[in-house]
């Protein structure tokens, strides 16, 4: 089994891009118990935004742009959607500004088999397959929404969350609103743009409009 670090080595320029976004968006940093990080993983299924250089295939975008190991993408990620359409050839499909990419590990049942990239049942997803021929490659940076599902979220999610992910403020507020009382026990510290805030008061401080750069810290790493 690949470790999180091996599966997702975020490139250096990710930090620069995050910094660029951070100039325009509030940066919310939460320090939580080590076990508490998993509570945020379902949030990644709704999607978060990243900004990367344009002109890339899905494979290049995910591996070179986002630092996902090629063998992880090949073996562990069994279903890839580009704009809601299942992709069989990741090297041919092109990412453009506003694209949404979703990644899933192997899924059960017939639907799981049907949506699998290049699988024996690929014929059954032809109505919702992504067609690649003739796609033009844009220039300049593009904003792409990424969704991480199931085991992929468990394995890549902590890395993305540690670096910081751009999430809609309204989505984040709604997420906090839905949590049980026990959720608030995982919080150890919080700050917005470097200003310490009470963890439980975070939902009231998040701007509803626009994006928030959410970064998570594990309390054990913090103390270490």
């Amino acid at each position: 089994m690949m470790t999180i670090g091996e599966a997702c080595r975020l490139p250096d320029f990710f930090s620069r891009v995050v910094s660029m976004d951070a100039e325009r968006t509030p940066r919310l940093t939460l320090t939580v118990t080590p076990g508490g990080i998993s509570r945020f993983l379902p949030l990644l299924g709704q999607g978060f935004t990243v900004k990367r250089p344009a002109g890339a295939s899905v494979e290049e975008f995910l591996c070179r742009g986002c630092g996902i190991a090629p063998d992880y993408l090949r073996d562990r990620v069994q279903t890839v959607f580009l704009n809601g359409k299942a992709i069989d050839d990741l090297a041919a499909a092109v990412v453009s500004d506003g694209s949404t990419i979703a990644l899933s590990a192997a899924m059960p049942g017939l639907a799981g088999a049907v949506l699998r990239k290049g699988g024996a049942y690929a014929a059954m997803h032809r109505q919702i397959s992504h067609a690649s021929p003739g796609e033009s490659r844009a220039s300049g940076p593009v904003r792409v929404s990424i969704k991480l599902f199931n085991l992929v979220a468990s394995e890549l999610g902590p890395g993305f969350l540690a670096q910081g992910v751009l999430i809609g403020g309204a989505d984040l507020q709604d997420y906090f609103r839905r949590q049980d009382r026990g959720f608030w026990k995982i919080g150890r510290a919080a700050d917005i743009d470097g200003r310490p805030v009470d963890f439980e008061k975070v939902p009231g401080i998040i701007p509803e409009n626009g994006l928030v750069l959410l970064a998570l810290r594990s309390a054990d790493l913090q103390s270490g």
Binding site: G84, A102, S104, M107, A111, G112, K147, F149
Partner: peptide, 11 residues
């Protein structure tokens, strides 16, 4: 576990 995936597929 299928919910997110089937939803993403638009099915």
């Amino acid at each position: 576990v299928l919910t997110n995936v089937i939803n993403e597929a638009g099915a």
